[in-house]
Design a protein around this nucleic acid. Sequence first.
DNA 1: TGACACTGATTGTATATGCAACTAATATCG
DNA 2: CGATATTAGTTGCATATACAATCAGTGTCA
Lengths: 133, 133
Amino acid sequence: MFRVRALSRTLTALYDEELRPLGLRASQMNVMTAVAARGEERLSTLADRIALEPSSLSRILDVMRRNGWVETVTDPDDERARLVRMTDAGNALYAEAAPLWRRAQTRARNLLGREDADVFAELANRSLSRRAP
Amino acid sequence: MFRVRALSRTLTALYDEELRPLGLRASQMNVMTAVAARGEERLSTLADRIALEPSSLSRILDVMRRNGWVETVTDPDDERARLVRMTDAGNALYAEAAPLWRRAQTRARNLLGREDADVFAELANRSLSRRAP
DNA sequence: TGACACTGATTGTATATGCAACTAATATCG
DNA sequence: CGATATTAGTTGCATATACAATCAGTGTCA
């Protein structure tokens, strides 16, 4: 547990370092990747998909909205819900971030060891899908 | 990377939940375990050992000190340095936390899958020892 | 349809975390 | 020795994260 947390801190620092030139953080990249992949999506659905509490996601979106990378609109089908979507600026940034992200991935793989990284990803996938009964 | 972070959040929530009756958090348990294992130790050494920035550790220790679980004294051999040690209250709490911790461990192993958990721990160990060149 | 339960999101509060800047103390070098 | 570089911690600032409480819509059921 301590190990997973330490690894999480270490990897986050590594990715943050690579993304710093764009003023983007790992947590935001996480959200951005999810939004970019799905297009418009509800906050709660998104939160669930990336294993974040809605309240945490709400806070992260505040920052991203302030930076003009995403926007949130009220769902016309349910006025309680908010739909999250990328802005043009967000998409542009996302494209810029891709190579930096890949560089971070490479560094992370080197840190973990090339084969171990795959095993790791696989295990994490299984664990996370098993989560949330 | 997202997966490691998600797993870290998930596990942290699980451990926090078990430890909540004692008002203890996973991050604090991490520090407490390290201090209990080593006895008196410098903040910077401790920080390095658990892969935390000194500034982060400093903040965590503030809370723990406020709760009376640890104390920090100036190192007589180097007045810049601070030595961290457990208090009696801290040791008592640590003992109380042990069974809750074990319960959390069990739940975590079930979540990860018994064998996978071992592989995971092993991989994380290797990665972390490889860290910090 | 009107009261009440339920759901989606936000906000209050607290801790965690890290980088950069700063302070205090020690080490180093001319 | 004294100026300077280095090192140990702390603090300012910003973000991340979660739980609990709250607010605002929706749904349900008598």
